[in-house]
Design a protein around this nucleic acid. Structure first.
Lengths: 223, 223
DNA sequence: GTCTATATTGGGATAGAC
DNA sequence: GTCTATCCCAATATAGAC
C-alpha cells in the first residue's frame, strides 16, 4: 500500500521565486526513523555546527544505520533541505502563538520587546540559524526556504502591531524589517563578545527609538 | 640569518579575554609566498565559501604547492587564523580613512548613512564575514579576533560622531552597537531575498529614526 | 623554502543480506 | 525498511628530494 518510496535524487529543483513554496511540515509526513534522524541532525547542528554534520555523526547520534539516511533522504543534500525545513517550521510554530494575547498598544509593544530581548541573549537558539545562513546564501533551494522563514518573522511583527492588513501595512513593513535586523545584528555581537558588548543597553535604546516612532505614528498612546 | 621557522602547531592558544590582542598586520610580517597563499584563500572564501576552502583548492588557486601551506602556517587551523587576521585588518583599514572628512553634524551623518547603505546592498562584501562567523562563534581564538573587528566598527561609528572621547561616549556606545547591528541584520535579509525585502525602505526608516534621536541629543542641529 | 609523493583518515554513497 | 560491509574519493598532514 505504501507508495512512499523516496526516489534518489528527488527534489523539485528550483521553484520560480518564493511565493508559494509552502514547505510541508515534516512531522506530519515522515516516518519515525526519518524524524529520529532529523532530530539527531538538529542536535549536532546546534552543538557542533554544520561542519560536524557528517552522515556518520548523525547515524551515531540517532542510533540508526548510516544507510538509512540515504534511504529516507536520498543523499546528504536532501537531508540538509529537510533539516532546514524542520528548523523553519519549528521557528515559526512558537512565534505566532505568543502574539495577540494582549490588547494593542503599550502591552503589545512590551511583549514584542521582551521577546526580542530574550532571543538576542539566548546565544544557543541563534546558532543553528547562523550555521545555515552561509550555505543558504549559496544554494537557491535553501535560500528560498530561509527567506520564507524571514518573511514569516516580518509578518509576525506586523501582526503584533495589528497591521498585517490595512493601510498601515505599507508603512510598517520597513519597520518589521528593522525589528528583525536588530535582533540578528545584536545576536551576532552578543555571541562574539557577551562581556564586552553591552546588548542590554543597546536593546534599551532600541526600545526608546521604537516607542518614539510608534508614538509619532499614533500606534501607541503615551510612552 | 632567518630565524623565521614557523614551528608546527605554533599558536599561543587562547589569550585571557580580548583586551590587547592587537593582531599584527600580516602584510608587514609574512613572506611573499605566504601572502600569495592568503590572497588565494581569501578569493576562495569569497567566491565558494568556507566549505570549499580546502588545501588543494588554495594551492591550485595560488599556484603554490600544497605543502607550502603547511610550511608557512603549520596546519589548516593556522591558515584560517591568519586568514581571519587579514580580513580583520583589511576591513578596518578602509573604514577609518573615510571618517572625519566632514564637519560634525549633518554632513557627517549623511556620509555615515551612505556608507551603511552601500554595505548593506553589496552582498559580496558581506559574504566572507558571514562565512567566518559560525566558526568564530565556536573557536575562541577566532572569536576574539572577530570580536575585535566589531569593537573596531563600533569605535569608528563613535569617531564619526566625535564621541570617541568625552562624556557623550557612554551615551553613544549603545547607539554604535545598533548601527552595526542594523547593517548586519539588513545585509542578511538582503542576501536572502534581494527582491522581496525592501532594504531601501528599511534604511530610509532607520535614517529617520537616527536623525530624530541625534537631534534630541543635540548632536545634529536641524534635520 | 619549495616541491613531489605518499600515508592516513574520514566522508558519502550503495550493494546486497535480512 | 533496516542493517553490515565495502567502494571510492577527497582532504589533511608529512617525509624526503632538491
Amino acid at each position: 500500500m505504501t507508495d512512499s518510496a523516496p526516489r534518489r535524487p528527488g527534489r523539485p529543483s528550483t521553484r520560480g521565486h518564493l511565493g508559494s513554496l509552502s514547505v510541508k511540515d515534516p512531522i506530519e509526513v515522515l516516518p519515525p526513523t526519518a524524524l529520529n534522524i532529523l532530530a539527531a541532525a538538529r542536535r549536532i547542528l546546534e552543538s557542533k555546527g554544520f561542519a560536524a554534520l557528517s552522515l556518520s555523526a548523525i547515524a551515531e547520534e540517532a542510533g540508526e544505520a548510516k544507510a538509512s539516511i540515504g534511504y529516507h533522504f536520498g543523499n546528504k543534500e536532501g537531508l540538509v533541505v529537510a533539516l532546514v525545513d524542520s528548523l523553519v517550521h519549528e521557528a515559526n510554530r512558537g512565534l505566532i502563538a505568543e502574539t495577540r494575547r494582549f490588547p494593542m498598544g503599550e502591552q503589545r509593544v512590551r511583549s514584542l520587546m521582551e521577546g526580542e530581548e530574550r532571543i538576542v541573549e539566548d546565544i544557543a537558539s541563534f546558532r543553528p540559524l547562523m550555521e545555515i545562513l552561509p550555505h543558504a546564501m549559496r544554494d537557491d533551494s535553501l535560500r528560498a526556504r530561509v527567506a520564507e522563514l524571514y518573511a514569516g518573522y516580518r509578518e509576525t511583527v506586523l501582526e503584533v502591531l495589528d497591521a498585517s492588513t490595512g493601510p498601515d501595512r505599507a508603512v510598517l513593513e520597513p519597520f518589521a524589517m528593522l525589528m528583525i535586523a536588530v535582533v540578528d545584528g545584536l545576536s551576532i555581537q552578543n555571541a562574539l563578545d557577551p562581556e564586552g558588548a553591552n546588548v542590554r543597553a543597546a536593546t534599551a535604546l532600541w526600545e526608546r527609538m521604537i516607542r518614539a516612532y510608534l508614538r509619532d505614528l499614533g500606534i501607541i498612546d503615551i510612552g
